[in-house]
Every structure is written in structure tokens, then in C-alpha cells.
Design a protein around this nucleic acid. Structure first.
Length: 130
RNA sequence: UUAGCUAGCCAGACAGUCGCUGUGCAACAAUUUGUUUUGUUGCAGGGAGGAAAGUCCGGGCUCCGCAGGGCAAGGUGCCAGGUAACACCUGGGCGGUAUGCCAAUGGCAUAUUGACGGAAAGUGCAACAGAAAGAUACCGCUGUUCUUUGAGCAGUAAGGGUGAAAUGGUGCGGUAAGAGCGCACCGCGCGGCUGGUAACAGACGCGGCAAGGCAAACCCCGCCUGGAGCAAGACCAAAUAGGAACUCAUACUCAGCGCACUAGGCGAAGAGUCUUGGCUGCCCGCCAUUGGAGUUCGGGUAGGUUGCUUGAGGUGAUCGGUGACGAUCAUCCUAGAGGAAUGACUGUCCACGACAGAACCCGGCUUAUCGGCUAGCUUUCUUU
């Protein structure tokens, strides 16, 4: 199992400046969406993918929840980064992404995380198959 | 051992794998004349909170403004202390509430609570009820007039009734009936005295007592306050456009002049054209014009660096103080990101894990919060 190449997520794998985000927003080559996320992407001239995450205060007012969404997306991207190719990706959390009804059972937070992770993985699958 | 209150502490634990971000060390590579600097890899070690939150107060820090004073605006309001400062904290005073005790119309103790200056400067407000809410007679009581039941007039705030609130309270005297009308005690106001740093308290003397409440209604009085905030501010600075200085080169057309002459050559000056700028945005007109290339300089955008964590700092001891807190000594360094790190997965265990994520830094307040631990006090039951 431990023979995989290192799945890193360093500074060069992120969209760090507003201009890079604007580039993707203004002319995305592909769009996908699920219940909680919207995904825009555009080919870049590097030999690795780059990720940007947008989680607005509208999508969830608490900073803790926003951090949680970002971490899920980022970690999933890290696992898929070698398979994605030369592309800039922006993932936007939609407004209802955290509005799950609070269930009775105790580990409902874990459940939300699992659901978000499944959604983001289906997005990667769509992106690779297209 | 049961329940509660107050104060303080913790914020699932352990192991493994992968990942992110600072720090230290080492190696390698690039870079620099060089000290270095940058990158990669490895190892070690650090990496959210008690509220990080709300942004409600108070400061530090930064830039801008500022002779001094006043007005306005905002804040604040018993006294003293603590503090860098505060609306916070500590201690005290006074008032309210609750409980308990006692020698009981009261006093004392404990707990709790109060934006707690001014209502005889002015304005305003008070639903419903009630006669009347700021000036008043509904019932009643008393006197008197009229022809009697009754009505009018006058006096009266003791009684009834209404209300959150009705013009000091109780008793005795007094009176036509009443009323601080008079007296005693209590309350209130004034005066000096005593105690206290003061708020205030005490006893004494004087005054019959001023027409009630609300100032978190306006307001008056005292005191305080310059503005904006780390997206503050400082530094480096690509490309593009524009600015300034300097250097080199010196557009086109025209006719004439001088030199030279086989010449379409050379030189100086003039007129015009186009370019650019200014005169009002445009046109005309007028004025200026060296119009191409290069170098340097300054401002400055993207971007980068910094501010950025050693501080009114923590811990311990001793001393001072009723206490908040202070002084001295010793010791420790404990996140520093920035499209924003502190996470993911697996396993084991248990009480099955709440509220919630640093963003320049501190001191408070307020709000959210599953549980657990440790003291002190009160309390239930059991045992001796």
C-alpha cells in the first residue's frame, strides 16, 4: 500500500491571487454541479492541477463549518491531484450545502462530511471522464 | 453520603499512516566578489479558544490634524481606592427586596439588588378607573338660606370609593365639622457641633412642613472626549501609458540668397504643410513646437517584503494591603496564517465528546456551551 507517490498539496497547487480566480470565472471551459457544489475549470500551462475553493458566508454563517467544507474539498483534491491533469479548478459551495436537517442520531456531523466527500468525488470522476 | 452555591482548572484519550504551516539543525543544488539569499530533501520540535464569538466599552500601536478658548455633538454620574485606562474590579455609604434573630410601631445580622447628581429653573407625560393626576368636593361630615321631602351657598381632605400613585404617620388635645390648628414621638428640611479622607452617620437646636411621581422624557449641573484604523503605516517594484532632465540625430514642400560649379553639392535664414501641446468639450482662428532614438530620475499599479508577535506576558516564592492589586527576586518563551495552516484515514478504550476557528496586540463586559475534576461553605442520610 505504501508504494504510492507522495500526494502533496503545496503552494503551487493553489490559486493564490484574485487574478487567477478571475481567469477561471470569466471563461470556464467546463462546468459541473452537484447538490452542494458548483465546479468551474480551465486548462492551464503548467504540468499539474491547481485548486481554488470558494465558501461564502451565505453558504454557512459559522466559520467552523466553512473551514470544514474547505478541508473536505482540499483533502479530496489532494488524493485525486495526480489524475486530474493540467487544469485550474474552482469549487464553489452552494448556498444550501450546510443546510442539512439536524438528525436525531449523534454523529450527524460525520454523516455530513461523508456526504460532501462523496459529492466532491463524483465531481472529480465527471471531470476526468469528460 | 445526598443536594445546592461560590471560586478555580480541563475541553475525549492513546497508537500508527498520509498531508498542511512556522522554527532549529544537516545535506544537496542554484545564486552572490563575498557575508549571504533561494529552493529541494531528511531529522527534531511547535501549531486555535474559554469564550478565539458579539464588536458593547477601555487602552497600546500607526498615520493625519492641532496656538489658545468657546459652542455644538457624544459619553458619563453616591464616595474612596486599584489600574495604562474604563461603563471594569475592590472596599465603603445610602435606598429597595428576602431570610433569620432580638430586649420588637423598632433594631441588628446575612444574602441580594440599584446609571444612586438635580423634580422650590422651565417644558412635557400619566392608559383604564376616578369628582379630581395639578389643581380638584362624587359620596360623606358641619354650618347657613329657602316653603317640607329636598335644593342652593359656604366650610372641611378625618372617613368611603377609584387607582401603580390621592398631598407626612400614630396618639392626645382642639373644633360647628375638620385640618400641623396646637402638643408628644417618628419622618422631613435648615443650622452649627462630633466622628469619618469622603459618601455619610450621630446626638443637639430651630422650623409646622414648602403642595406628589417620572430625568433609561426633553432639560439643568458637574466631569470626560481631536479623527481614522493593520485594508493603519513603512519598504522593494515588472509590464503598459504618461511626466521631468540630459545626450545623439534633425521631417516634408516652396521660391529666393551666399559659397562652389560639368552638378541633383554645401551653408545660413524665411514661409507653408503635417505632428504634438495649450487657449473652452467641438469647429474656425491664434500661440508654442526638436516630431526620431537612447540614458537617467521621480511618482506609482499588479505583485512582493514588512508591520507580526517578548508582552500593561506567564509561573513560583517572599513582603505590603481588609481587598482589587502592588513591590522584589528567581525562572520560562508558549500559533503567527494570510483566497487564509492546525486536517484526513485506520485501530483500541470510555463518561460517546457541547458551544464553537486566532487574523495587530492587550484589559473588561455580554452572549453560546455536553460533560468532568479540585477546593471552601450550606444541607440530606448513615455510622461512631
Amino acid at each position: 500500500m505504501g508504494k504510492e507517490p507522495a500526494l502533496l498539496f503545496q503552494r503551487e497547487s493553489r490559486l493564490c491571487t484574485p487574478s487567477l480566480y478571475r481567469r477561471v470565472f470569466e471563461s470556464p471551459s467546463k462546468r459541473f454541479q452537484t447538490r452542494s457544489f458548483r465546479l468551474l475549470c480551465l486548462e492551464n500551462e503548467l504540468n499539474h492541477p491547481r485548486l481554488g475553493v470558494v465558501v461564502s458566508k451565505k453558504s454557512s454563517p459559522l466559520a467552523v463549518r466553512r473551514n470544514m467544507v474547505k478541508r473536505v474539498v482540499r483533502d479530496s483534491f489532494r488524493r485525486y491531484s495526480l489524475r486530474l491533469g493540467k487544469i485550474d479548478v474552482v469549487v464553489i459551495a452552494k448556498e444550501g450545502s450546510m443546510k442539512f436537517s439536524k438528525p436525531d442520531f449523534t454523529d450527524w456531523k460525520e454523516d455530513i462530511k461523508k456526504q460532501l466527500r462523496q459529492e466532491i468525488e463524483t465531481l472529480w470522476q465527471k471531470l476526468m471522464s469528460s
